[in-house]
Amino acid sequence: MRAAVLTAFGAPLTVREVPDPEPDGGEVVVEVLATCVPPYAGEVFSGRRKYPLEPPVVPGPGGVGRVVRVGPDATRLRVGDPVWCDSTVRSRDDALTPDITLQGWSSRGEGGARLARHLHDGAFAERMRVPTENVFPLPAEAEADPARWASLGVYTIPYGGLLAGGLEAGETLLVSGATGNLGSAAVAVALAMGAGRVIAPGRNRAALGLLTDRFGPRVRPVELSGEEEADRAAMSAAADGPIDMVIDLLPPAAPASAVRAAAMTVREYGRVVLMGGVGMLGGADLALPYPWIMRNSVTVRGQWMYPRSANLGMIRLVAAGALALDPERVRTFPLDAVTDAVGHAAAHGGPFERTVLTPSGP
């Protein structure tokens, strides 16, 4: 089969013939129909983000596929089924604190690195080997437009954070980083889950306008100035009432002060979920005040990715029409144009812009 291979950090991806994946017990082989190229993929491949990939590797975090082979432990999957392949792989020998790898993308700790060496290659290939429990059946309509359904990989990440924070229908949510690729997805998912109001701060006036045009008055945009106290006051005022929950999805280049300004708008007994990359490239720590957290009984938690059940929940939200994929601006690239796809993703990382690689397509 053909695949895009990262031979070394800083080297361009090379499309070449590689051996077909052979499944072990508890694994499925899928034909990859579509996979999203993250806007920051170029930073990963250059080594700037210092992701723990071990080249040579076929990168790519999950995607939409068609089942080619199933193992003996699969009782309902059938060859030919359209499926979603979740990249978040967990070790099976520790139910309490499993090691985690993002197949073809990243990992956590030495245990995650060991897991990544077994499930080394990701979705930038014609075929991919995936753990059985990471394969989720899709409705028939997904097969007609797999590139659009590949957006599941973007939406499920903030969905995991919203589940972790216990977002309830009617609540007010503030999305820190709302004008970014993941942040805008969080706005959409929160509204699909029944949020009464979403505060959307950002500096990109056009992106803020796009959010309000798409979702109407339930989204309250706030144009940020970069001055911490003034921004906190503006976000609080936009809520016109208490903010129940804050989710942060800002990228590594953002300052910790922006996260702090957003987090400290949350009400007494409110929840703050941290999912972004602030601090990954150095810089000041978040430094939330101890007395503020304690005296206001604020819950602050980190969340990396999402629970396995979130995949099914997200598929259901889309299939039911609660979350519409029609407005996505999708640009597809064949496998041979993977370098162009990475460049396009970097230049088009705004709200609801998807760069999609179609490895098995024409």
Rank of each mutant, 00 (worst) to 15 (best):
A3C: 02
F9S: 00
F9Q: 01
L13A: 00
T14M: 13
R16F: 00
D20Y: 13
D24S: 14
E31C: 06
E31N: 11
A34L: 04
C36D: 06
P38C: 04
A41C: 02
G47F: 07
R49D: 14
K50C: 06
L53C: 05
P56L: 07
P56E: 09
R69V: 13
P72Q: 11
P72R: 14
P72E: 14
R78C: 12
D81L: 09
W84I: 02
S87P: 15
S87G: 09
D93M: 07
D93R: 13
T97M: 15
S107E: 03
G111I: 08
H120A: 10
A125Q: 03
E126I: 10
R127N: 06
P131K: 07
P139D: 01
A142Q: 06
A147W: 00
G153I: 13
G160H: 01
G161C: 09
L162E: 08
A164P: 07
A164W: 05
G165S: 10
L167S: 12
L167R: 09
S176L: 00
T179W: 03
L182N: 07
A185F: 06
V187H: 08
A188C: 05
A190C: 09
R197I: 01
A200E: 02
N204Y: 05
N204V: 09
L208Y: 00
L210R: 14
L210C: 00
R214K: 11
F215Q: 08
F215K: 11
L224S: 01
S225R: 13
E227C: 06
A230H: 11
R232L: 02
R232E: 01
M235P: 00
D240N: 11
I243L: 00
M245Y: 01
D248Y: 07
S257L: 09
A258K: 07
M264A: 10
V266F: 03
V272Q: 06
V273Y: 01
G276I: 07
G279P: 08
M280Q: 14
M280G: 03
L288N: 04
P289Q: 08
N296K: 15
S297V: 13
V300W: 08
W304V: 15
M305G: 03
A310C: 10
V318C: 05
A320Y: 00
A322C: 12
L323S: 04
L323H: 08
D326C: 05
V330Y: 04
V330Q: 10
T332K: 10
L335E: 09
G343P: 07
A346K: 12
T358Y: 06
G361F: 08
P362W: 12
P362Q: 12
